[in-house]
């Protein structure tokens, strides 16, 4: 994947974090809208799944960028990318699992 695609997604996920994070905050803190969101399991789970994915992508890509800059050797650059991708996917899978358990879906 071109670096511009990776970084474009980095910016997109920043916007997604703001939107889904706001929905998450409203769901848990706003007495008027909160119950409405929470009662719709698909909406709540969908929002959390996107929030988690965006958050992990943004955070792990940030770590990747730092590592690339700290270890500039070109032969390490690709390995760093793959290692971060694997750790990110595993973390996401675990996170989803925890979410499903918390919502009583698994």
């Amino acid at each position: 994947m071109r670096e511009s695609t990776v970084m474009f997604l980095h910016y997109i996920t920043a916007i997604l974090i703001a939107i889904t994070g706001l929905i998450h905050l409203l769901a848990n803190n706003d007495p008027a809208i909160g119950p409405l969101i929470k009662s719709n399991t698909a909406l709540y789970l969908g929002n959390m799944a996107i929030f988690l994915a965006a958050l992990l992508y943004h955070a792990f890509n940030g770590v990747r960028v730092i590592l690339i800059e700290m270890v500039p050797d070109r032969c390490w650059t690709k390995w760093i990318g793959w290692a971060i991708l694997i750790v990110g996917v595993v973390t996401y899978a675990v996170g989803l699992q925890v979410l499903m358990v918390a919502l009583g879906l698994a």
Binding site: E3, S4, V6, I68, E69, T77, G81
Partner: peptide, 9 residues
């Protein structure tokens, strides 16, 4: 320029 050590750094 659109590489890991290019303009996005």
């Amino acid at each position: 320029v659109d590489t890991e050590h290019g303009c996005w750094r």
